[in-house]
């Protein structure tokens, strides 16, 4: 058999080796994927292919697991990672409309990244700043009292700064 090149680093390989020693190694797949995501920020087909070969688990199975759990990202985060808080307070004050607005403006769904790699969209649990609801974070920056009408503006601002 051809040697498969493992780009995923030594730590992950070591962890997979460890799993392969245990009973029922395939049950550690989720743990392995977590490690890969932690390292690279997302799971690419290449990463999953490598895990498949190394652990001898079909890629279709891995792809099934990776797409089933919300936790796994299948695309790299954008340069600007937008996260809309969906905690109760934010939700009550219209976070769902804000999220919808981001989706239409950017043309992407939760967990996705725009083609130019600039924006990615996520939702988060309560950030604990309910007084500021609805809250949106862009990377480390917190925006408070956001309403859906402000969304296009916010995006345009970032875009023009980029140009």
């Amino acid at each position: 058999m051809m040697e498969t090149k493992i780009h995923i680093d030594k730590d992950i390989k070591a962890f997979m080796d460890e799993c392969l020693q245990r009973d029922n190694p395939k049950s550690y797949l989720i743990a392995v994927l977590h490690k890969v995501q932690k390292k690279f920020g997302y799971l690419s087909p290449e990463h999953m292919d490598q895990v498949a070969q190394y652990m001898q688990i079909p890629t279709s199975t891995i792809s099934g697991v990776a797409t089933f759990y919300h936790f796994f990202r299948l695309q790299p985060r954008g340069k600007y990672a937008i996260s809309v808080c969906m905690g109760t307070a934010c939700f009550v004050k219209g976070a769902d409309k804000v999220l919808e607005s981001f989706k239409t403006e950017l043309g992407i769904d939760i967990g996705e990244t725009t083609q130019d790699g600039l924006f990615s969209l996520e939702n988060s649990r309560c950030l604990g700043v309910c007084a500021l609801a609805p809250v949106v974070t862009v990377n480390d920056k917190v925006y408070s009292n956001v309403n859906e009408k402000q969304v296009p503006d916010l995006i345009n601002r970032v875009r023009s700064e980029e140009e």
């Binding site: 079909p58 279709s60 792809s63 797409t67 089933f68």
Partner: peptide, 9 residues
Amino acid sequence: VFNLSQLYR
């Protein structure tokens, strides 16, 4: 062959 699986949810 294991080509197919159920994706997303």
